[in-house]
């Protein structure tokens, strides 16, 4: 049974766990603390970002689901979550013959990023997430 309170509890729990890790690391040297900051987003941070982009991404429904439908986009972000630069990592595929669907998919992913900004990024640790890579994969949705 779907219970929004439970999800909220899980998110809170995730926050608590990550806070605890940081607390445990308080007495470790400064270099190592910076290292922990660089490992990635916490689960709740990642979930918040995903949930936001899920809502903005209109998946083109005509795509062939037996093809490689992964679009990787590198973002440069400002501290407020607005996007200063986007780069499609497999850009060469955009204009390859027979890959018209990839262009459609990449454009839809770019639209999602633009529509969503400012992105829901953490309020701290800008150095950690000032560059992000989003991997848009439509297979799961299209195979349905």
């Amino acid at each position: 049974m779907f219970d929004p309170n439970n999800i909220a509890a899980l998110i809170d729990k995730s926050k608590e766990e990550s806070a605890e890790v940081l607390k445990t690391n308080d007495d470790i040297s400064q270099d190592q603390e910076r290292n922990v900051e660089n490992v990635g987003l916490t689960l709740s941070e990642e979930d918040a970002l995903k949930a936001q982009i899920f809502g903005c991404w209109s998946i083109p429904l005509g795509l062939p689901y037996n093809e490689n439908l992964l679009v990787r986009i590198k973002l440069k972000l400002k501290p407020d979550g607005t996007v200063s630069k986007t780069e499609i990592l497999d850009h060469a595929r955009m204009n390859k013959p027979g890959q018209g669907f990839y262009k459609v998919l990449a454009e839809s992913a770019l639209r999602a990023v633009k529509l969503c900004q400012p992105l829901r990024v953490p309020t701290t640790g800008y150095e950690r997430w000032k560059e992000l890579q989003l991997n848009f994969d439509a297979r799961e949705m299209l195979e349905g």
Binding site: G40, W57, S58, A109, A112, L132, Q133, N135, F136, D137
Partner: peptide
């Protein structure tokens, strides 16, 4: 670690 790019997988979207 300092240069590792954070990756987020977007596997869902809206079908509206």
């Amino acid at each position: 670690n300092a240069n590792a790019l954070i990756e987020v997988d977007i596997t869902r979207g809206n079908l509206n």
